[in-house]
């Protein structure tokens, strides 16, 4: 079972995660055998510099982006990474004084894990871009549902094309096979529903403008197709927001 949600995040963080696991095992052995850890001031300073850089770049992104999710979710990730880095600094100071210090080893492991987790949180905030596109299509769909003419359909069509492309790229990025299949299946349903929706809108608009019989039925049919499509897009959004850690809750 993959630990990280996307291949990009996995490629960045999985090697570090493995090393931390290794360190945890050694730490457990160390508690028994009392092995020493030398001065880690220099590598900790390198982590500190990298953290400062990430926080700086991240804060610039938060200031310039219009993505509200990013604005909301990035700052807690910065705090997590910065607090974890402080633990590493403390660990290095403690180890300098006592290379056998058990609390220092705990700080070292907690700090490394926190850096990993905070960086993962930060990278996950980017995953919301696809959700925004889906929400935009939902908005267009809602607008079209209220309209009594066909012209707003063209903006929906271009939004759908963008969404389809993003979902295609996204499913290739996911590490969970089930999530990939769910995205593919829902996107295929949306694609199949599109011509049905065009037809339903056309029939409704034509019937209504000619004051012909069957307006109510055409409207019902159109509403049914809208609802079906909307439900499928909601399902896509739900799957896009699933992460590894949600899986138990979702199951």
């Amino acid at each position: 079972m993959p630990v990280f949600h996307t291949k990009t995040i996995e490629s960045i963080l999985e090697p570090v995660a493995q090393q931390i696991s290794h360190l945890v095992i050694m730490h457990e052995e160390g508690e028994v055998d009392g092995k020493a850890i030398p001065d880690l001031t220099v590598p900790v300073a390198a982590v500190q510099a990298a953290v400062s850089n990430l926080v700086r770049v991240g804060k610039e992104t938060v200031q310039t982006t219009e993505d509200q999710v990013m604005k909301r979710d990035m700052p807690p990730a910065f705090i997590k990474v910065e607090n974890s880095c402080s633990k590493l600094v403390q660990a290095a100071q403690m180890l300098k004084a006592d290379p056998y210090s058990v609390p220092a080893r705990d700080y070292l492991i907690d700090g490394s894990r926190g850096i990993l987790s905070g960086t993962s949180d930060l990278l996950l905030t980017f995953d919301e871009a696809e959700v925004q596109t889906c929400l935009c299509v939902q908005g267009q769909l809602h607008f079209l549902e209220q309209a009594n003419e066909f012209s707003p359909f063209f903006s929906l069509s271009s939004g759908m094309t963008k969404m389809s492309k993003m979902i295609e790229e996204r499913q290739q990025e996911l590490t969970h096979q089930e999530h990939r299949q769910m995205l593919i299946s829902s996107m295929n349903t949306v694609k199949e529903l599109l011509p049905v929706l065009i037809s339903a809108i056309k029939i409704f608009v034509t019937t209504k403008s000619s004051h012909g019989a069957g307006v109510e039925e055409a409207e019902r049919n159109r509403r049914f197709t809208f609802e079906k499509m909307s439900a499928e897009i909601n399902e896509i959004i739900r799957v896009l927001q699933l992460t590894t850690w949600d899986e138990d809750a979702w199951a």
């Binding site: 990009t8 960045i12 963080l13 090697p15 570090v16 090393q19 931390i20 290794h22 360190l23 050694m26 052995e29 160390g30 055998d33 092995k35 020493a36 850890i37 030398p38 880690l40 590598p43 900790v44 390198a46 982590v47 510099a49 990298a50 953290v51 850089n53 990430l54 770049v57 991240g58 610039e60 992104t61 990474v81 590493l88 070292l108 490394s112 850096i115 990993l116 960086t119 930060l122 990278l123 980017f126």
Partner: peptide, 29 residues
């Protein structure tokens, strides 16, 4: 892109740190 690069740097620095701690311990076994 900048954030991805910064995240890669953090991963590399953390990796180097953990390696130093682990390797030092291994030497002393």
């Amino acid at each position: 892109e900048q954030i991805l690069e910064a995240a890669k740097s953090i991963a590399a620095a953390t990796s180097a740190l953990v390696k130093s701690a682990s390797a030092a311990q291994r030497e002393l076994v």
